[in-house]
Simulated scan of single mutants.
Amino acid sequence: MKTLILPLVAALLAGVAGASEAWSTNPAEAMQQAAARKKGVMLEFTGSDWCGACIMQKKQALSLPKVQEDIARSFIPVELDYPRKKQQDEQTKASLETYKKSYGITGFPTLVFADAQGRPVHTVVGYSNPDQVMQDTEKAAEALKTQQALTAKLAGQLTEQERRDALVQLLNTVPQSSICTFYKPALEELAKLDPQDASGIRAKLNRKELLNTQREELADTFRQKNVHILAEQKPDEALSIMDGYLKKDGLLPEVKQAVLMQEVNLLMQQNRVNELERPLKEAIALLPDSFEGKMCSRLLEKLPEIKKERGQLKPGEEPPLPPGAIRATKMIVPPAPAKK
């Protein structure tokens, strides 16, 4: 079967300059090489002259010979750089922005491990140390191997049940966030073979879309009501807005947990430690195994210690720092723009 580069990816394949000599500077060339060698590509989305985590990851992990050798076994690395100081021509900038949008990049650094057609098989967001990079590379290599085998299988003669099973396995192998964009043909074929969604894949995708929508609505509502400013100036009003939002019908537990976490943060800032137990317990009950749920569990365990440390402090007052420690700079959130 002839290997084709997806139309979406083909539109992005202008060479992007700026990578170090050890990395490919041409995505199209890298994908062609990957196809010839039956490998994949690893796309590194980075900000080489401003993103501290990107700079550290490149220096401490991605530039190490042992890490590069590990990556090179299954992938050809490509750097996609989004600098703030270094000059880039307009064509390069446009190409980079299209890549960023197509792969849904929301933070730097991000590593996207993909097949030779540019379809993701594994994605990592945020800084990783050398061991973590090699672990993720191993996971990605296994996912690529499975994806390639299933793609080859689907190119052959199969019964409807065999095709359905192979499609389900394929879509369960790759990142959920990439399915609607990069695996749309497979998803559409599965919809015909599994109209009742017995696999549950479409239900998962629909829930993911709903979750993203609700998160955006939450951020927009709090921004419009200037909740972050109210938290400092009128904390009771901010808490009232949060409590009111929790009463909205149909909120997913992840969104409720996010609101409760904001309540916890506000109460901590105001040193209202005697009010922490309720939102902490409610957040834990929603999703105990999530990152937020585990964080709340740790805070609940330390609540007696927190009360002892902060119970006598005034609103906004911070406990004394240990000798030699430096207090973190507070992030300033700008107010929402006035409605026109």
Score class of each variant (00 low, 15 high):
Asp236Gln: 15
Asp197Ala: 09
Gly52Ile: 10
Glu277Gly: 10
Asp220Pro: 00
Gln135Phe: 10
Leu246Trp: 09
Ala258Arg: 13
Leu286Asp: 06
Ile201His: 13
Ala325Arg: 14
Glu292Cys: 04
Gly15Glu: 15
Gly156Gln: 12
Lys2Arg: 08
Glu254Met: 00
Pro288Met: 11
Asp243Thr: 06
Gln33Gly: 07
Ala61Thr: 03
Lys139Ala: 06
Leu154His: 02
Val112Pro: 00
Asn274Leu: 06
Arg207His: 08
Val333Gly: 02
Lys59Tyr: 03
Leu8Asp: 13
Lys59Ile: 10
Glu160Met: 12
Gln88Met: 14
Asp194Pro: 02
Asn206Asp: 14
Pro304Val: 02
Ser24Cys: 11
Ala338Asn: 01
Leu150Val: 04
Val124Thr: 11
Pro120Lys: 02
Ile284Ala: 01
Ser24Asp: 15
Gly250Met: 06
Gln257Met: 04
Pro185Asp: 12
Ala283Met: 06
Gln157Ile: 04
Pro27Thr: 04
Ala328Ser: 10
Ala325Glu: 14
Pro7Phe: 15
Glu317Asp: 14
Pro323His: 01
Met242Leu: 15
Glu305Lys: 10
Leu13Arg: 03
Gln32Trp: 00
Asn129Asp: 15
Lys294Arg: 10
Asn129Cys: 08
Leu280His: 01
Arg272Ser: 06
Ala28Met: 04
Glu277Leu: 08
Pro304Ile: 03
Cys54Ala: 07
Leu80Ile: 04
Met1Val: 08
Asp89Val: 01
Asp194Ser: 04
Asn212Arg: 11
Val78Ser: 06
Glu29His: 14
Met331His: 09
Glu44Cys: 02
Pro288Thr: 05
Pro320Arg: 05
Asp236Lys: 13
Ile179Val: 09
Gln147Lys: 12
Tyr99Gly: 02
Pro315Lys: 06
Thr181Glu: 15
Ser297Val: 06
Ile306Thr: 12
Ile55Thr: 06
Gly15His: 14
Ala141Lys: 06
Glu301Tyr: 11
Gln117Asn: 13
